[in-house]
């Protein structure tokens, strides 16, 4: 059991590092990137359709809402991934300042905000039908709210500068500071601050206990990859747009 856990966390780490590295390559890619974009469309459309159609284990209360696993959870995973990419761009900016890296960090953070909003919306909808309330004072939910507040503050901070270089540097500092000080705690705090109703927390079974024949797992991982690729795609498009805009402003 413990060795499986260690292997699991090592795999998770490798996946995260590879995701950040590969994500930057994909976001900055100059070509059309038809292959991975086609794969994204396939995974998202196919995954969503399959997520609504496959057989899921029948459970009391949760019932069919367990299908939210294929929507809500991948959104949070891709949010964390794209925010990590944003922080890495900010670190690169501090080492070697350029307007390009600032735009990339900003656009990745914006993608993260969009995905976070989607995650909150799907989670809230799920909570209404299983817990009976749109929002509860659950440690996990508090954490999600804090994450959104940080990036709201990041946008406010960016809006309060007139000088471009100053804005880029100071917002990169805040991005790194807030992310590093808070996000790791979102994973620790729910374990410390008492019982949580959220699936997979303090004695609440995650989906893996119910997923006896691994069908859900087989669908879940591809959908996660699809959403992460989608996050990179979104960032690529919005940062290309921002590059064009800044070029136009120069002329």
């Amino acid at each position: 059991m413990t060795s499986a856990k260690i292997i699991g966390s090592v795999l998770g780490l490798v996946f995260t590092v590879a995701g950040v590295w590969g994500g930057q390559r994909l976001i900055e890619q100059r070509g059309p990137g038809l292959f991975w974009k086609g794969l994204t469309v396939l995974l998202l459309v196919g995954g969503s359709a399959a997520g609504l159609l496959i057989n899921v284990p029948p459970l009391p209360i949760v019932n069919e809402s367990i299908r939210n696993l294929f929507f809500h959870v991948p959104m949070w995973f891709s949010m964390i991934m794209v925010l990590l990419v944003s922080v890495w761009y900010s670190i690169q900016y501090l080492r070697n300042p350029s307007a390009r890296l600032d735009i990339l960090a900003h656009e990745s953070a914006k993608t993260g905000i969009v995905l976070g909003m989607l995650g909150l919306a799907t989670g809230s909808l799920w909570a209404k039908f299983t817990w009976g309330a749109w929002w509860t004072p659950d440690p996990r939910l508090n954490g999600a709210a804090v994450a959104m507040l940080i990036y709201g503050a990041y946008l406010v901070l960016r809006g309060s500068f007139r000088d471009d270089q100053q804005r880029a540097r100071v917002s990169a500092i805040y991005n790194i500071f807030a992310f590093a000080a808070v996000i790791p705690l979102l994973f620790i705090l729910p374990r410390l601050s008492g019982p949580s109703l959220h699936p997979g927390q303090t004695g609440n079974p995650g989906f893996s206990q119910y997923d006896l024949d691994d069908t859900m797992r087989k669908l879940f991982y591809p959908v996660v990859i699809g959403w992460i690729l989608f996050a990179f795609w979104l960032t690529q498009v919005s940062s290309r747009f921002a590059f064009l805009q800044s070029k136009q402003d120069e002329n």
């Binding site: 508090n142 804090v146 503050a153 406010v156 807030a178």
Partner: peptide
């Protein structure tokens, strides 16, 4: 560094970091 309304900005930036 941002200047202007310092105390408000500080509350906005500081709160989320302090919540945990």
């Amino acid at each position: 560094k941002a200047g202007g309304n310092g105390a408000t900005l500080m509350a906005v930036l500081g709160f989320p970091v302090m919540v945990p």
